[in-house]
Computed example of a mutant assay.
Amino acid sequence: MTRTSIASWNINSVRARIGIVEKFLREEAPDILCLQETKVECTLFPPDMFKRLGYDHIVTHGQRMHHGVAIVSKVPLTDIRKYDWQANGEARHVGVTLPSGVRLDNVYIPAGGDIPDRELNPKFGQKLDFFGRMTEWSGALNGTPTVLTGDFNVAPLESDVWNHKALLDVVSHTPIEVETLARLQAASNWIDLGRHFIPAPERLYTWWSYRAKDWEASNRGRRLDHMWVTPDLMPKAVSHRIVQPARSWERPSDHIPLITEFDF
C-alpha cells in the first residue's frame, strides 16, 4: 500500500494554459492528473512539460478545439477505455486501471446549453441522456473499485451554489439535473468525496464565471467538479481539497483543481 494522490482539473485548453498546469504540478506534485476540456487532438497534445516533471504515462482522448480529456501519471496506466456516452463521437471520457487494480474514470459531462428543457434545447436532452448511459455503466461495475472524477457540470446541493433560489432554473442546478445526478450516484452507491471531507452546509465551489469583474469579491461560484469513489475505496481516501488560488493565476481556467490522497 502506498500513498497516491489524484488531481482533477477542467483546464479549458491545455495548450493555452500549459504554464499554469506546470505551476500546479510543480507546487502540488500529484501522482496523477485528470484533465477535462483539453481542446486538442490526441496527436497535438503537448507531452514535453509533463515528461520533464516525471509524468511519463499519458493517455488522451481529444478532438480539435472542443471537449477532450486526458490522464497524465507518474505511475503506469493500463486497460485504456474511451466510452461514447453521448453517442455522437465527442471526446468526453477516458478510463484506465492503476497498478493497484483501481479503476480511474475521467469524464467531461456536457454543460447542457442555456435552457433547461429538452424540447426547446436539444443540448439539455443530450446532457440528460449522457447521464442515463453513465448510470447504466455504473450499475454494471459489479464491485470493481473505481474512482470517478471530472467536470460533472451539476452543482447538486444548496451549498454548492452561491444562491440556491436564484439558480433553480439555471442549467447546472435545476431539480431535474440534481435528480439525474442522484440516480447516477445511487447506481453504485458512489461516495462524494468533496462532501465527505467538507460536509454541507459549508460552501464549496470549484467554478467561477469569467463574466465577473472580480470573481473573488462576488464569489458567485458553483461546485461543478467532483471526485467520487465506490464504497470499497472510501476507507482508503485520506484527504480531499480544492486549490482555490489557481483561479487567480495568470490566464486562469474558470475551474480549479481538486486533489484527493489515497492509500492503495
Rank of each mutant, 00 (worst) to 15 (best):
P201I: 07
P201W: 05
V161I: 10
E179Y: 01
M227R: 04
A182G: 04
I242P: 00
P201M: 05
D225W: 06
A237T: 05
S159N: 14
T144R: 15
P231I: 12
S209I: 13
Y210F: 12
I198P: 02
E202Q: 14
F130H: 14
I176R: 11
K213S: 15
V178H: 04
Q185A: 13
D225Y: 03
H226K: 02
T146G: 09
H240G: 03
D225C: 02
E179W: 03
N153H: 01
L184Q: 08
S159E: 14
A217C: 09
I198T: 14
A155I: 10
F197Q: 10
G221K: 05
D151R: 05
R223M: 03
G194Q: 02
Y210G: 09
I176D: 14
S159C: 15
G139W: 00
D151W: 03
S138W: 05
M234F: 11
I191W: 03
W208N: 01
F130Q: 06
T230H: 02
R133N: 12
V171E: 05
R195M: 12
R241W: 10
W215F: 10
E136W: 05
G194L: 04
L157R: 14
V243W: 08
N189A: 06
K165N: 13
I198H: 12
N153I: 03
L167V: 03
E202C: 08
H226F: 01
W215T: 08
V238A: 07
A237Q: 06
R222P: 08
V229G: 00
F131Q: 07
W207P: 00
V178T: 06
E136S: 13
Y210P: 03
L168F: 04
P199D: 11
R203A: 13
E136L: 13
H226G: 05
T230M: 03
T149V: 12
A155M: 06
S172T: 11
N153R: 07
T146W: 02
A155D: 10
T135E: 11
V161N: 08
H196C: 07
H240W: 13
N163T: 11
A237G: 06
A186Y: 01
P235V: 12
N163H: 13
L181A: 05
L184P: 00
P156W: 03
E158P: 15
R133F: 06
F152P: 10
V171K: 01
Y210N: 13
A140W: 01
T146Q: 11
